[in-house]
Each structure stands twice: as structure tokens, then as C-alpha cells.
Amino acid sequence: MTTPRKTRVAIVFGGRSTEHAISCVSAGAILGALDPDQYEAVPVGITREGRWVLASGDTGQLAIRDQTLPEITAASGSSVVLAADPTVTELIVQDGLPSLDGVDVVFPVLHGAYGEDGTIQGMLEMAGIPYVGANVFASAAAMDKEFTKKLAAAAGIPVGPYAVLRAGVSLSESDKERLGLPVFVKPSRAGSSTGITKVTDWADLDTAVAKARQIDPKVLVEAAVVGREIECGVLEGEAGGAAEASLLAEIHVDDAEWYDFETKYLVGSRYSIPAGVSEDIARRVQDYALRTFDALDCAGLARVDFFVTDSGEVFLNEINTMPGMTPTSMFPMMWAATGLEYPKVVDRLIRTALRRGTGLH
């Protein structure tokens, strides 16, 4: 009697974006959560230069230690290539070693550009390999904060005042009057709070825009919304059912001026799950989260972030189609509080991806 072949899951992480390190930490957590009786993990790291390597999968090397961030380099393993050819699902090892057998599904744990923005999703569609998460369009639309806001607003989901500065464009005086101070200046297509500046004096605007444009030539200037930071996790329904919303989380930034990179990943922040909001507000946030998921045609998973003002108004902040999956990330913690532990979340995401496959749906 032959032993059934395990499902081969390629965990792809690292990448060329500014969120390289957080992707590595997320991948380490996912590798540790995979059921070894069901899945064979194939860890594939992408260096900051874009080289794909067959990584060791040592979860200890993919953790933040003493505020030192992990990184994938060319020395992390043998070079591999995934052909964009639906008749070839093997990972081709370039260093004279035998190629790996076919990959059944890819878990692209890539945050930011060249991963969460539809690029790798397009390659996987070309290759005909199922993958966890949103499709090409939804990934691109959710990554670009301008189009997230436009699609959400069209679906009746409240968004705060903002202005878009494309390359070479400056903020007009009328926009300054409309937005008021303070404002947040951020790259349109980035995450993990990288490149963001809080501006309280218009004299500092140009410096903030230049900082954001080091990451993305298109910049958003958003009016500050004074309120609580509330997040909601969304999972695609099982067996084709409706998507589900998690319990809510509230972020308490305490001494930090806002929820920046250091507060998220290095210093740490307090949080409450479930969030201490009224039942009415909780239902509205969950409803808006599910509607945002649908408005962008998302799949698999998302974390949807909101601001809730003291008067009870709810505004969409952003949606992440591949949210942080680190041990301290809100998405897995919200689902654990809802009753779905981390390994079950990972298993559900993989099964959903395999059922959905590739192509139009």
C-alpha cells in the first residue's frame, strides 16, 4: 500500500519591497503552522534583488531577534525558477541539483510591491498554479490606496478626505484648505507604515512627499481622522459560502504618535480583542469590511482597517489582501479570538486556494 502524496505547498516570501523582513517573519509563522501530516512545505525566498532561492525553512532564522530583522540573501540557498508554463509546475533548481516535483499550491506571503500588488499573482495565473489570496485585479486595486478608496466609495463605504499627487504634482492651495492640518503623507502603493509622515505644518509637506516618493512616485495626502483604530479580518467562505468577518481588534498606540513601523513590529503596541465598541458599531465595521472585500473582488483573506470617531462615524483606512501573518499580527489573533486557531486558518486558506484554482471565476 502506497502512502498518499502530501500536498506540496510553496511558501514564497521575502521579496523586493520595503516589507521584505515582515514577509520573512510571516513565512516563518506559516511554516511552523503547517500540518506535516498533510503538507510538504517548499520554502522559497526572494532576495531584495529579486533572486529566487530554495531556503532552509528554519523558522528561527525567519524571526525578529533583538530588533534585528531577518533577510533572504543569495547565500540563503540554491537558485530556483518557476516557469510561467502551465505544463511545467516543477521548481527548476539551477545549481545542478534535481528539480523539485510539481507544486500543488503557492502561498505567496509577500507584502507590498512585486508580491501583494498582482505581479506574482499574474505569474501564477500564467503558470496555472493555484495560490492563496486575491487575484490579479483585487491584489492591484487593494495595493493602490487611491483605487481602494474609489472602489469603496462607489460601494457606499465611507472614506476620509484625501488628495492624490502623481509624479511631479504638488498639493494645491485649495486641497490644503479642504484637508486641513494635520495630514498623513504616504506612498500610494506600500504597506507596514513605511514612508509615512504626519505633517502638522505645511512647511514640512515637501519633505514628507519626497520621503514617500522614495518608495512610490504616486503619493496620497490624507486628512487626519481623529478616532480609534479598529481592524477586522475577513476569510473567504468555505465551499463557496459567503465570506466571514472576525471579531474586531482595537489598536492602542499609547506613547507613539501613530501606528508606525516601530510600534507595529519592534516596540510593540497594546490591543484589545474584541474591540471595546458598541454592538452597533461592531456590526457596521464588520459589514463595511465584508462589503470592501466584495467591492474589490477579493478572495482568500484580507484585513480591513478603519477609524471610528467619538461621534460613531466609521471610515475605511485600507485593506490588506496579504496581511501580516507574524505571531503578533492582528489577522491571526483576531481569528484565534473568533475561534479559529492559526493552524486552522492556514489550512483553510490552502484548501480554499486549491478549490478555487486559477482562471476566471
Rank of each mutant, 00 (worst) to 15 (best):
I157E: 06
V183C: 06
T292G: 13
E318G: 00
A27M: 02
L97H: 07
V93L: 04
C24A: 13
R270N: 12
D347N: 14
G300I: 08
T309C: 08
T119Y: 05
W202R: 10
A29W: 01
A134F: 08
G168T: 00
A154Q: 11
L54E: 02
R291A: 14
K150E: 13
K149D: 07
W52A: 10
I129R: 11
V136M: 07
K211N: 09
E238C: 12
D280T: 06
A353M: 11
W258N: 03
R291K: 14
P4R: 02
R65D: 07
G133D: 14
Q286F: 10
D201M: 02
L340D: 09
R355S: 12
I251C: 08
G32T: 03
D347S: 15
A141G: 02
D294A: 14
R270T: 11
R348C: 04
A208L: 02
I46W: 10
G191Q: 05
S23W: 01
K6C: 00
G160T: 01
L181I: 04
L124E: 09
P187S: 00
M325T: 02
S174V: 15
G276D: 14
Q214A: 03
I30D: 12
E146M: 00
H20Y: 06
K198A: 01
I273Q: 01
E250N: 07
P327I: 07
S56H: 03
A155K: 00
S188K: 11
A299P: 03
I230K: 13
E236M: 09
H111W: 01
V109G: 05
N317Q: 10
D206V: 01
S311H: 06
V225M: 02
A239F: 02
C298W: 12
S17R: 00
K145V: 06
A353I: 12
N317R: 04
Y259D: 10
V221C: 08
A249K: 03
L360S: 10
E244V: 14
E116I: 13
H361Y: 13
V42H: 02
A75D: 15
R356D: 13
R8D: 05
N135E: 13
E250Q: 15
I273E: 07
A224E: 15
F147W: 05
V132G: 03
G45R: 04
A153S: 08
P4T: 07
Q38E: 10
R178D: 05
D204E: 14
P36H: 01
D260Y: 11
V93A: 05
I230N: 12
R283T: 15
G128V: 14
D104C: 01
A242C: 09
Y131V: 14
E231R: 08
T197K: 13
A223F: 08
S246C: 04
D144I: 00
V183I: 06
K218A: 04
T148M: 09
L220P: 09
V277D: 06
R213Q: 12
V225P: 00
S99D: 15
D216K: 01
S76T: 09
G102R: 07
A299H: 10
D254I: 03
V105L: 00
D294R: 12
A190D: 10
L165Y: 09
P4Q: 03
G102I: 03
L31W: 06
Q121Y: 05
